[in-house]
């Protein structure tokens, strides 16, 4: 494999902007193989934009993004497809195709990227839906018939369809009740352990940060302010980091 073997995602000198408004300026970030990295930051600091840049949906104005050792801005069509099949993305509300059933949604990448026979695809679908904890009868439903939490699970099943090495999650627990959110955290942790995937997760959820993130990256002032495990966050002096990790909601966490 070309490039470093330690970083699944390496962002260097990233600059993104919408017209005159600069979102990131000279941002550096590394996601190591097999870790769960949580990205936090105030609203409008460009967490989702960073995720979109990493998965190639947004072209950076400057800087480079390496995914699995390949600079994604310099890939040919075939290499790009290969990298896309090795990364999975869960969008905020699942982004399931509304005209397809849950099972068909999960099968989309399988049909597109492989030539497996239909019976194998059907069985893989059942395994993936089981993996994310969806009951078998959910398979034949349409996304509009599912609850928010189930849509997220189905979206995760689709993201996992090709056994990606990296999964990017955009606020996976937003909009879930605390029990559902905790279950989703457990699910991500379990999948990350059994399948050995790297997880890049944008989140606001302090519980998720405590429960499953190996490292946390804080976005502020158009850059990554600090990266490290929770202990580092708790020691950090920056006012926003202090109020985030020592605020009233965080205190309840620590007392546990």
């Amino acid at each position: 494999m070309a490039g470093s073997a330690t970083a699944a995602i390496r962002v260097r000198g990233l600059r993104t902007r919408f017209g005159p408004q600069v979102v990131h300026d000279n941002l550096d970030l590394e996601v190591r193989y097999g870790e769960v990295l949580g990205v936090v930051g105030a609203s409008g600091t460009g967490k989702s934009v960073l995720l979109r840049a990493v998965v190639g949906l947004m072209k950076p104005a400057a800087g480079s993004i390496e995914v699995l050792g390949h600079d994604i801005s310099r890939l040919g069509a075939a290499e790009r497809r290969e990298i896309e099949s090795r990364t999975g993305v869960l969008f905020q509300d699942g982004a399931l195709f509304s005209s397809l059933t849950v099972a068909q949604n999960v099968q989309v990448p399988l049909r597109e990227h492989t030539s497996l026979p239909q019976d194998v695809i059907d069985e893989i679908t059942a395994v993936k839906l089981g993996m994310v904890g969806l009951p078998p009868e959910a398979a034949c439903k349409y996304p509009s018939e599912l609850s928010g939490g189930m849509r997220k699970r189905a979206g995760l099943a689709r993201a996992l369809a090709l056994d990606p090495e990296i999964v990017c999650l955009d606020e996976p627990t937003a909009g879930l009740d605390p029990i559902g959110a905790a279950a989703f955290d457990g699910l991500v942790r379990r999948l990350q352990r059994t399948l050995g995937i790297t997880v890049f997760m944008v989140t606001h959820d302090l519980d998720s940060l405590w429960a499953i993130c190996d490292r946390i990256a804080v976005l502020a002032e158009k850059q990554v302010l600090v990266v490290g495990p929770m202990e580092v966050m708790l020691q950090h002096e920056h006012p926003w980091v202090r109020s985030y990790f020592h605020g009233p909601r965080a205190r309840a966490q620590r007392s546990e």
Binding site: D122, E123, A126, L129, G130, P136, C140
Partner: peptide, 19 residues
């Protein structure tokens, strides 16, 4: 262990989707 975990997961979900 990780291989048998995966195989167990598959055994637990051995019911192809029929719609």
């Amino acid at each position: 262990p990780e291989l048998s975990a995966l195989l167990d997961l598959i055994e637990a979900n051995d019911a192809p989707v029929e719609c």
